[in-house]
Amino acid sequence: MNVSARNNVRINGSGEKAMVFAHGFGCDQNMWRFVEPAFRNSFRTVLFDHVGAGGSDLSKYDPVKYGSLSGYADDLIEIGRELDLKDAVFVGHSVSAMIGILASLKAPGLFSSLVLVGPSARYIDDGDYRGGFSANQIEELLEFLEANHMGWSAQMAPAIMGNADRPELGEELTNSFCRTDPDIAKHFARVTFTSDNRDDLAKVTTPTLVLQCSEDIIASTEVGEYVQRRIPGSKLVILNATGHCPNLSAPDEVIAAMRAFV
């Protein structure tokens, strides 16, 4: 199996150490377009799309395998093996923060440090734990996703998939960064927003940096602090950036915080 093609792996930069960027739920590796180039001088940068997103091979989407974050973590490990990565820096946004943690636990030595941008170990409230959402609200989101195909149509799929490089955005490819087969989007959303990785946090031994945005409705500051508190020896940086995607809205701040850490 060609892991690089399956996950649309892109490699840039030079350096002994590798830095692996993983995108979260919603869009694809383009989420890192303002951050990744800043590290090309000192790192071999690795970008990829989760299966189901962006330029990945949709035919490899297996609802059973990707029925839990563990399936995505396995892919991440396979990418690491194929590229012969050791002691790499992992940078994961949103749900990929937990995917990176799972991979670091399954494959010790793969990563020497973890940068978690907007992580959440659980999105749904549970007793005293405040994830930020009720189970009903997550169901609403899943229904909502069905109404929002983002211009997806089965006929368009080959055009989108065959255009992994996307040198220029044609009118045809409008919204393509965040366009996914609606069934896959819904399934990934369910897996993401019903995940619970709170028990995995304490097992992390890799040095970890948590980057937390202000006013993030997906992963609140309280949630970010919880993640930091549970991961032994981890650091928390609260960014001035608002929203859930500082990698896009405040790349300079993200880059600075990452440089200080790695």
């Binding site: 919603g26 869009c27 989420m31 949103s94 983002m150 993030d216 409705i217 997906i218 995607c245």
Partner: peptide, 15 residues
């Protein structure tokens, strides 16, 4: 809001 944060806000910045 969730959809806006995960899809629309990133799209706006990207394209």
């Amino acid at each position: 809001r969730m959809f806006y944060e995960t899809h629309i806000a990133p799209l706006l910045r990207m394209q």
